[in-house]
């Protein structure tokens, strides 16, 4: 999950999620940064809206209790 956290951190900080930035964050965290995985992540995130994904989770969370009740 390091790759994902690195991406989310960049996203929250308002920085671009590109190879250079992701690697920089991972290295700062002492995590290994595998080129292929970084590239795959970036390609995958091109079509995924992080903000929307988070909102959807939050909504699910908010809805859940009611639903679960």
């Amino acid at each position: 999950m390091e790759y994902i956290y690195a991406a989310m951190l960049l996203h929250t900080a308002g920085q671009e999620i590109n190879e250079g930035n992701v690697k920089k964050v991972l290295e700062a965290a002492g995590a290994e940064a595998d080129d292929a995985r970084v590239k795959a992540l970036i390609a995958a995130l091109e079509d995924v809206d992080i903000e929307e994904a988070i909102e959807k989770t939050a909504v699910a969370a908010a809805a859940a209790p009611a639903a679960a009740a």
Partner: peptide, 28 residues
């Protein structure tokens, strides 16, 4: 850049990326 990626590596699972983001967010 000196690396050959075969198709099994090149397959991106967007569903998994999405669910990973949601999992990461939930855990955080």
């Amino acid at each position: 850049d000196q690396t050959v990626y075969t198709s099994d590596l090149l397959t991106i699972d967007e569903e998994k990326t999405l669910s990973d983001i949601q999992k990461a967010f939930t855990q955080a």
